[in-house]
Nucleic acid binder design. Structure first.
Length: 225
DNA sequence: GCGACAG
DNA sequence: ATCTTGTCGC
């Protein structure tokens, strides 16, 4: 699935150009209620080697209960370069996804989608390569600033690139730093934010999907060492 | 030229 | 990403 993977930054930039062009940014995708299986993906790294572990956790959207999960371990094939995160995280994530018995209706990534210098963040890559509706929820600012969202859960502020809205800072918990939502493929920003709020009815800042995937990939990495 | 910079 | 100590609060 990820043979001909770029080895150099120049190669990666060429792939990104193709990915960005292939992204479907017009399909509004599933609204909350229309998606039953929502998957979260994450990757953990060993600090003393190039070993890594990826995890996918599929939740029942209505109850947030775990329906299925899968992991994959391997070695990093690409360094961490801001703007090229997809080339580091995608191979293990795709391997983990291949372990599922059924494709989810929607995938939530840890990181950015459209709100990326070349409109090609992790969520765009994952959506295009799998064909699945996909969006990203990042924990820290990247390249786009924003006005301050209000203090209440659900308050938002646009992530702006000039006059273009590329994402949204979304307060998922009152008085706590917002998360950064941006679409990847086959999902609207409104739907992505609505899903993010539904997935944070757990009282935490981060979506339940990413929390579960984060715990699972850490455990998988520990076992693999 | 220099700094900033998802995970 | 990863390491880390204490601290506050339900």
């Amino acid at each position: 699935m990820t043979d001909d993977w770029p080895e150099t930054e120049a190669g990666a930039l060429a792939v990104q150009e193709r990915i960005a062009r292939a992204a479907d940014l017009t399909d509004p995708g599933p609204a909350p209620g229309a998606a039953r299986l929502i998957a979260g993906v994450d990757v953990a790294y060993d600090e003393h080697s190039d070993r890594l572990a990826a995890a996918v956790v599929v939740l029942d959207a209505a109850t947030l209960d775990v329906v299925e999960q899968a992991t994959a371990t391997g070695r990093a094939r690409f360094p961490y370069v801001p703007g090229l995160l997809a080339f580091r995280e995608l191979p293990p994530v795709l391997d983990a996804l291949a372990g599922l018995s059924a494709a989810p209706d929607l995938v939530v990534c840890d990181g950015y989608g459209l709100a990326h210098p070349r409109r090609a963040g992790l969520a765009v890559h994952l959506g295009v390569l799998t064909g699945l509706p996909c969006f990203g929820v990042a924990k820290t600012p990247f390249v786009y600033g924003h006005p301050d969202p209000g203090p209440a859960r659900g308050d938002t502020a646009p992530l702006l690139d000039g006059a273009e809205t590329v994402g949204r800072a979304l307060r998922t918990r009152a008085g706590v730093r917002p998360v950064y939502v941006s679409v990847g493929h086959r999902i609207s920003l409104d739907h992505a934010c609505a899903h993010t709020l539904a997935l944070t009815s757990n009282g935490f800042r981060q979506p339940e999907t990413t929390r579960r995937a984060d715990h699972l990939c850490r455990a998988a990495l520990k076992d693999a060492l």
